[in-house]
């Protein structure tokens, strides 16, 4: 009887659409639409070295404009992700000064990130002029983590010539409320993508698989939202339960769920670069996830596992390596 009482959840549009697509191996879809190449990324943040890939902490550096401060104590983060970024408020100088110092040490690009206010907006507006100088005077690549930028912020960012804005797209109200503790709805995420598109700012949406305490709640709906807007690329990440957060001890989605999602995403976005981002469970399972990403025809992988470059080669993919965030090119 319980089953009869449950509300009927409509099947996400992307799933419905893929049902109409003739059964095709997602890797074949990739072969039809992209060259036989794959890029492996080392976005800084932590030392990463395998027998096939050697990351650099100097080429691309993440900066938090709020240091460790964030008004949202999200269950999956609890400000832990800010720990590995440079702390701008503690630096004796402006954002431009910091970028200039980094460039002297070999940096070619920066991720400008930070904690949010209670509306999930990263305070970027008073750094806009510095960002313009970083682009114009230093020629560095700029990626931005804006949270959910408002109209004023998008308008200002449009003049900076940034390489892309990276933001999590959440299609599930429970995740927004219970994980982010945010007074927002999925339509707010849709509005941000619309705003970015209208201002000509390259959008790089991220979907976190298992964001609702390890469950796949709104990921398919997020694909539905994203599909309506132009993208530079799409990044998939998987919940990495961190100690000291509300997700400690949470079990991430199963390999089958992850693999199915990879495949559906490839089928739904046959010509969009899809990348496996930095966050995902570590260890032996990571190797399996990375292999599934290649099998599902994804175009790039950050922090590749041991042996995965060789695996891609066995599939006929020529590897290239960039020490920066997903999709950055020098």
């Amino acid at each position: 009887m319980d089953v009869l009482l449950r509300p009927v959840v409509p099947m996400p549009e992307v799933v419905l659409q893929t049902l109409d697509i003739p059964v095709q191996n997602p890797f074949e879809i990739r072969k039809e639409n992209f060259p036989n190449e794959i890029t492996f990324y080392g976005p800084g943040l932590k030392p990463h070295k395998t027998s096939e890939f050697s990351g650099s902490l100097k080429e691309f550096v993440s900066i938090s404009v709020t240091g460790n401060n964030c008004a949202l104590n999200c269950e999956h983060c609890n400000t832990k992700m800010l720990d590995d970024m440079l702390d701008l408020p503690s630096f004796d100088g402006s954002l431009f000064d910091m970028a200039k110092n980094l460039q002297k040490n070999g940096a070619k690009g920066v991720l400008i990130s930070g904690g949010s206010n209670i509306r999930n907006q990263v305070p970027l507006l008073h750094h806009i002029e510095d960002m313009k100088r970083i682009r114009k005077d230093l020629g560095m690549v700029i990626r931005i983590h804006p949270g959910l930028p408002d109209e004023e912020t998008c308008e200002a960012l449009a003049d900076v010539d940034i390489d892309g804005v990276m933001l999590d797209i959440i299609g599930d109200q429970e995740t927004i409320t219970d994980v982010y503790h945010l007074d927002a709805t999925p339509s707010d995420y849709e509005a941000v993508l619309e705003r970015l598109g209208r201002h000509g700012i390259p959008a790089i949406p991220h979907i976190i698989l298992g964001h609702y305490f390890g469950k796949m709640n709104g990921e398919w709906a997020a694909l539905d939202i994203i599909k309506k807007f132009p993208l530079k690329s799409l990044v998939l990440v998987i919940l990495l339960p961190l100690t000291g957060t509300g997700m400690e001890g949470v079990v991430p989605p199963s390999l089958k769920e992850i693999g199915d999602f990879f495949g559906t995403t490839r089928k739904s976005f046959p010509t969009t670069p899809i990348l496996l981002g930095c966050a995902r469970p570590l260890g032996a399972i990571k190797i399996k996830i990375d292999r599934m990403a290649i099998n599902a025809g994804l175009n790039g992988i950050a922090f590749p596992s041991e042996g995965i470059v060789g695996y891609a080669g066995d599939k006929g993919l020529k590897p290239s390596f960039i020490n920066a965030c997903c999709g950055v090119t020098w």
């Binding site: 932590k46 990463h48 570590l282 260890g283 032996a284 990571k286 041991e306």
Partner: peptide, 28 residues
């Protein structure tokens, strides 16, 4: 999160790689 170690009987040399690890803040 993940370790590889040399097999029993393998020679190892001071300062040379004998295995690998993946930890929360470093892979190497």
């Amino acid at each position: 999160a993940y370790l590889t170690l040399p097999n029993v009987g393998s020679p190892v040399e001071m300062g040379k790689a004998m295995g690998s690890m993946e930890a929360a803040k470093m892979t190497g």
